[in-house]
């Protein structure tokens, strides 16, 4: 695929390297060091760093400000943007704000429902949905226009991504849904955490058969278990995540003090396995509140050092 933006992430993918991204969650406070320290920890091991947007609907420092912090450190942020909290005026406005700092990647999401967060009684917006936000980001970039039709002075120049969850039901809807995102203009996908390899590979194969993978890069999402409890929680409590019994058992059969290590081992095995799967273009390592393990995961998976691109 031809490179269309100055995004380093896009260039690495276009050059045929496995891309590696990870994420940092902004703090429940205004201390900038919280972000910069996490970023320092992982910066040499990833190509781009996602900054989550009030994830799980818990109020945090805004994604845009945290992305600017990363940009000022010379790093490559991926601005996560959910449609839950802002209408189309605010979304376009924030895209321009990000563009003014030459933030070149955006991930378009609908966002967790507010009832999961700390403002459960709040109102969600969804003036646009994730599909329409993809279209908006592309329209602003490619046409240099606002949704309202007016011209943008110095249009944003962002590589446009979205999420995909092959594990949510009904499964039959999941490939068509990717097709719809591709039709809307998405250029890269970061998947939900993958534990059920078979299902992910089936989804990827069906997507490939439909010709979708010629038009979109797929970054496989992985999340290491910190404990057997976490594996059980992900299996039983988080809709849209599938954890096979044998993985839960493997974690549970490991002595408690060895469980974090075993979780990392599993994650590395998953990456090794996924490297052999056609259609996987990179990895999105989501080490939730465990960013310090990202270097080890990347290094032991043979993904270090990271390539350099012009």
């Amino acid at each position: 695929m031809k490179v269309k933006t100055p995004s380093k992430l896009e260039k690495i993918l276009a050059a045929g390297h496995y891309a590696v991204t990870s994420e940092v969650g902004p703090p429940r406070g205004s201390d900038p060091e919280n972000i910069t320290k996490k970023a320092e920890m992982i910066k040499d091991y990833v190509d781009a760093i996602n900054v989550t947007d009030n994830q799980t609907s818990v109020t945090r420092m805004c994604s845009l400000a945290a992305c600017i912090r990363l940009k000022l450190m010379g790093l490559e942020p991926v601005l996560q943007m959910v449609t839950r909290d802002r209408n189309r005026i605010a979304l376009q406005s924030d895209i321009l704000g990000a563009a003014s700092y030459d933030i070149h990647n955006i991930l378009c999401l609908s966002g967790d429902h507010q009832s999961f967060g700390d403002c459960a009684q709040g109102q969600n917006v969804h003036d646009l949905d994730s599909m329409q936000l993809i279209q908006t980001a592309r329209y602003m970039r490619d046409e240099g226009k606002f949704l309202g039709g007016g011209d943008i002075g110095r249009p944003p120049n962002m590589f446009v991504g979205a999420a995909a969850n092959p594990f949510a039901d009904p499964f039959e809807i999941r490939v068509p849904r990717l097709a719809k995102k591709v039709a809307a203009g998405v250029e890269f996908i970061q998947s939900q955490c993958i534990y059920n390899m078979e299902k992910f590979e089936l989804w990827l194969k069906m997507s490939g058969d439909r010709g979708l993978l010629d038009n979109v890069y797929i970054l496989a999402g992985v999340t290491p278990f910190k404990s057997a409890g976490m594996a059980r929680y992900m299996k039983n409590r988080v809709p849209g995540i599938e954890v096979p019994d044998e993985l839960v058992k493997r974690m549970a059969d490991t002595p408690k003090e060895k469980q974090p290590e075993e979780g990392i081992n599993i994650c590395i095995e998953q990456i090794e396995h996924l490297k052999g799967v056609e259609g996987v273009h990179g990895f999105h390592v989501m080490a939730i509140e465990w960013e310090e393990m990202v270097p080890e995961i990347v290094e032991r998976s043979g993904l270090y050092p990271r390539p350099t691109v012009e």
């Binding site: 329409q132 949510a168 809807i173």
Partner: peptide
């Protein structure tokens, strides 16, 4: 435009 990832 279709379901989110939270269908259970």
């Amino acid at each position: 435009n279709g379901p989110c990832g939270g269908t259970d």
